[in-house]
Design a protein around this nucleic acid. Structure first.
Lengths: 116, 116
DNA sequence: ATTTCATATGAACAGTTACTCATATGTTTA
DNA sequence: TAAACATATGAGTAACTGTTCATATGAAAT
């Protein structure tokens, strides 16, 4: 699978392989970032940054259908990035974790530094 | 586009809209995370965490074709997440920014906390 | 009980993406 | 100059993803 080249990488590869986390963990990490990698989901998470919101409020805020928002909320909930509570017919969503805020803030910092 | 509901969200939406960054910035943020959301690219970035590597070394380390790695390195370079230098026929890649490390580390923290 | 309202969900479709294969580019060595 | 080597890149393809549309679920009100 990996193409051959004439370099001798044995020492380097030994070192790097030792430091690398396992495949499974790296895949999990990629899957986590995949969820942040969609503007609709990012907007949903930003909407919930300060306070909880019901589905139709998010839908109205983002100008998207309730169905589209619900589908994405499911993705976010499966990843445990948001949680919800029911109050009658209405379901309120919130960020489930302060890490979500930290991750978003970190990405922002990167973006803003780049602009300089 | 957004479905109607009987709730009155005017106050809430006013507040949240004021706090939300612009659409363009949120899209840029999603695009940044999109790049982290692929296990091959994550593995490449981890490979470069401690020291620079040439393309064929990465290819050998990950057990993938040189072409596949080169394609992904281009994505990473276009996003300015990696940089490279030439030394004869060989091209060495490195992380272009300490932010890359911070972003990865942040995601890891989230994953590890979840496991508890 | 039936209707209304808020949300969830399955199927289908269009757009995107990551890899493979073949080939091109750029550098060194013979 | 030609051959060998390291890397880059375009086209093609299979798999994935986000939205829409239609419908289902679950709770409250009539």
């Amino acid at each position: 699978m990996a193409d051959k080249c004439k370099h001798d990488h044995t020492a380097l590869l030994g070192r790097v392989k030792g430091e690398m986390p396992g495949d499974e963990l790296l895949t999990d990490l990629a899957d986590l970032y995949k969820i942040f990698g969609d503007s609709t989901r990012i907007k949903i998470m930003f909407s919930l940054y300060e306070e909880e919101m019901c589905v139709c409020a998010i839908s109205e805020l983002l100008g998207m259908t309730q169905s589209a928002i619900s589908h994405q909320l499911k993705v976010l909930k499966d990843a445990k990035l948001v949680a919800n509570r029911r109050e009658g017919k209405t379901i309120y969503y919130r960020l489930s974790d302060d890490h979500v805020k930290t991750i978003i803030a970190q990405g922002f910092e990167h973006l803003l530094e780049e602009d300089q």
